[in-house]
């Protein structure tokens, strides 16, 4: 019954109209480039090098995708990225929600110092060299997918997003559970997490996107091409001879414009396909049923 209330109003309220127009506009601006990218990735380089873009894939060409598929082990790269994304997101969510819960509880002597400890790494970093030494020489994680996952495991930004959400949980529900004699851990597991599904979905999505797109730690720590995650492999595909004009111009001739666009399509595709699954949790009032049930 409750959702009806949001719907019951007359459909032609001015703000609703404004919203539809506003969202449509933003949508258009957002996906117009997507179309340019998609269409361009199927357009022959000769046309792209004339205009830089193409509204329709004509003359049609699969050169870029052929180059990508001819490259080494694209399938392996999908597997690597899949592993990094799934395992990474799961571990990250576990660590993040645990930490966020403790901070959100405002426990005396514990929550505030923890919040500060979590925040400081957002400002201070030891730089590349110590991280490199730590991962390669102390943890011996070179060429392991965990070397890609671990440096990004807890993002302070997302911890605080989650803290904010945990703090908005209705205290009355938690309190009644406490009175029923539930332990704090049980409250976290039984009430806190289920009530926070929307934010868990969002934070999980953001982590997943981070892991899926990550190439820099992979570049640092993974030298075995069979273990390259997708973004790194794709980046490598454009033989980046341009690093210096001092270098010989040898190198296979690849369709540069087209290839860059096709690489974008190949990388974005899977995440866009996965997006609706995460979206399910924060589109409609999931919390509602949970609170009342």
């Amino acid at each position: 019954m409750s959702t009806d209330i949001r719907r019951r109003r007359a459909p032609l309220e001015p703000f609703t109209v404004v919203s539809i127009i506003g969202v449509s506009l933003f949508m258009l601006i957002s996906i117009a480039p997507l179309w340019l990218i998609l269409s361009g990735s199927f357009t022959a380089e000769s046309k792209l090098s004339e205009t830089g873009y193409s509204l329709f894939p004509h003359p049609f060409s699969l050169d870029a995708y052929r180059t990508i598929l001819a490259g080494p082990t694209v399938v392996d790269a999908y597997i690597a990225s899949g592993f990094i994304t799934i395992v990474g997101t799961a571990l990250a969510l576990a660590c993040t929600s645990g930490l966020a819960w403790v901070i959100a509880r405002r426990l005396p002597m514990i929550s505030r110092p923890l919040a500060v400890l979590t925040y400081l790494p957002m400002l201070f970093t030891g730089g590349l060299v110590p991280l490199y030494l730590l991962v390669t020489q102390y943890l011996h994680l070179a060429n392991s997918w965990f070397a890609v996952i671990l440096p990004l495991l807890v993002a302070p930004f997302l911890v605080f997003i989650q803290v904010g959400a945990f703090r908005q949980l209705p205290e009355s529900v938690l309190e009644s559970a406490r009175i029923d004699g539930a332990s704090e851990l049980r409250i976290f597991w039984r009430i806190g997490l289920p009530l926070s599904k929307p934010i868990l979905a969002v934070v999980g999505l953001f982590y997943a996107v981070n892991f899926w797109n990550e190439w820099f730690t992979a570049l640092l720590f993974i030298s075995d091409i069979d273990k390259f995650p997708l973004p790194l492999l794709l980046q490598n595909l454009i033989a980046n001879v341009s690093a210096s004009t001092m270098l010989p111009t040898s190198g296979q001739a690849v369709p540069v414009y087209q290839l860059r666009l096709a690489l974008t399509v190949v990388t974005i595709g899977p995440i866009l396909l996965a997006y609706p699954f995460a979206q399910r949790y924060f589109v409609k009032g999931i919390t509602l049923g949970a609170t009342k049930g």
Binding site: C95, T96, G98, L99, V102, I103, L107, I110, L185
Partner: peptide
């Protein structure tokens, strides 16, 4: 409950 923060 603080144990939850230990891994992180």
């Amino acid at each position: 409950v603080s144990l939850l923060a230990v891994p992180a």
